[in-house]
């Protein structure tokens, strides 16, 4: 291992970190925004949208992310009419193609996670909300979604980590993400370990940060589920 190669080329790795983080966080943002309405419609078994959403999640969860990225990047670029269309400035860029593929992919998984969580809402909570005279929209906003998000959090944290790991696919379409930066270093100096090890260490550090963040979030959101202390005497309320 030649650590000087890594320290001398830190600018590539920094660029890689910026590209990976921006791709993953924007994909999660867009994916999350798309998935909430889809999950609600899907859980409601909407007559028109239900089967369409099912087909969408079936295709995007059933095919490898690498193929989705290739089809958007190389597949769309083959058509003249797409090269002449207004969307070309966006589809021309590898970064945007990766973002589109990642967003659609994570939206499909997140839709299924949220749909499951919505369907698992205890009937009692729904009945209580109805008994209070809440409309369907208010009930969704104040009872069903908050409780569903809490239930979905552990599964969603896995999806975030999968998305981070899956994002290495961007390096195959010429985006310099973290793995791409490692490959540039490898290629420049005809080595193999230096670039791959530094990429692996960076991904590992990011995963540790993400899991810690979700741990804190879960502690905060699931505070009411923690076992309560029973042996401590009640303190007199402060005035």
């Amino acid at each position: 291992m030649d650590f000087s190669l890594i320290s001398e080329n830190y600018d590539f790795l920094l660029l890689g970190i910026v590209n990976t983080l921006s791709l993953v966080s924007l994909a999660l943002l867009f994916g999350g925004l798309i998935s909430v309405p889809l999950a609600i419609l899907s859980a409601d078994r909407h007559r028109v949208f239900g089967p369409i959403i099912w087909g969408y999640t079936y295709i995007f969860r059933g095919t490898p992310l690498l193929i989705q990225v290739y089809l958007i990047y190389y597949g769309l670029g083959q058509f003249e009419f797409i090269q002449n269309s207004v969307a070309w400035p966006i589809l021309r860029s590898a970064w945007w193609c990766a973002l589109i593929a990642f967003s659609l992919n994570t939206a499909a998984y997140t839709t299924e996670i949220f749909r499951g969580a919505i369907e698992a809402t205890p009937l009692g909570e729904v009945e209580a909300a109805k008994a209070c005279g809440m409309s369907r929209l208010t009930m969704m906003r104040r009872v069903i979604l908050p409780s569903a998000f809490r239930r979905a959090l552990p599964a969603y944290s896995n999806e975030v980590i999968f998305m981070l790991h899956g994002s290495v696919v961007a390096s195959t379409i010429s985006v310099i993400d973290i793995l791409g930066a490692g490959r540039v270093i490898n290629g420049k100096f005809y080595v193999f370990r230096e670039g791959l090890y530094s990429a692996a260490v960076i991904y590992l550090a990011l995963v540790v940060l993400i899991t810690q963040g979700f741990q804190l979030w879960e502690n905060h959101w699931h505070a009411h589920l923690r076992p309560r202390p029973t042996s401590t005497p009640l303190k007199a309320p402060k005035h």
Binding site: G77, Q78, Q83, T172, V184
Partner: peptide, 16 residues
């Protein structure tokens, strides 16, 4: 930068 020369041709003809 690309992994193979074939990918370079693909992206040249795609106009990238």
């Amino acid at each position: 930068r690309y992994a193979t020369q074939d990918e370079v041709y693909l992206d040249l003809t795609a106009g990238r």
